[in-house]
């Protein structure tokens, strides 16, 4: 049916959007899932011990791999970070201070994905997430240094926590590959 057909005369055509509602819903659902799973692991693990700390990051990265494998579009990582940060800021306004750092990290990941120009390949998605995780940890470390520069003992503890978290992220990349392959096999991810 063309634009001039009798059925569409007089009706303004809806604008073609870059983001389809279905993709936005997937991003929203996964943002909720990632936020909730991090919280649940922290509660289920009985607080901040190294195992739950690593596990929390592992699950978050694994779910992020699944999300970006499901919505393979430039900007997904950035949109996910912005939405998570906005909702976190609604719940806890302190999170607003972390927003610029998170956006810088997500932009770095997106730039890498753009330079590679292979959005459909799992390897480039993994590389983009790995770089996002690394840059965000680096920014966290810098912020920790600024906060605890007077007491280096606390900074060392913060650095250890960030390092354990990053190990979890690296493991999460591996489990993300396995998970995505399983979901592809089950027909839930169709790319």
């Amino acid at each position: 049916m063309t634009d001039k057909s009798p059925l569409v005369i007089g009706i303004s055509q809806p604008r073609k959007r870059y983001w389809q509602p279905r993709e936005l819903v997937v991003i929203g659902v996964f943002s909720a899932l990632i936020k909730l799973s991090s919280l649940l692991i922290a509660i289920a693990g009985g607080g901040m011990n190294p195992v739950t700390l690593g596990l929390k990051n592992l699950v978050a990265t694994m779910l992020l791999v699944v999300l970006i494998a499901k919505v393979r579009k430039p900007g997904t990582l950035l949109l996910f970070v912005v939405i998570s940060s906005i909702v976190s800021a609604l719940l806890n306004s302190v999170q607003l201070f972390l927003l610029p750092g998170a956006i810088i990290a997500a932009l770095t990941g997106e730039v890498v994905l753009y330079l590679v120009r292979k959005h459909h390949e799992l390897a480039s998605i993994l590389m983009s997430i790995a770089i996002f995780d690394f840059v965000s940890r680096l920014i966290s470390l810098t912020l920790s240094y600024l906060m605890f520069r007077e007491s280096m003992g606390l900074f060392v503890m913060a650095a250890i926590i960030i390092a354990i978290g990053y190990i979890g992220c690296v493991l999460g990349l591996g489990s993300g590959i396995l998970f995505t392959k399983e979901l592809k096999h089950a027909g839930i991810i169709r790319h």
């Binding site: 959007r17 870059y18 936005l24 929203g28 659902v29 909720a32 939405i83 909702v87």
Partner: peptide, 16 residues
Amino acid sequence: FIYLPAAVMIRFIPVF
């Protein structure tokens, strides 16, 4: 494109 996923995120946390 920011409001829709953010609303979905808030709505889905209690469901999860």
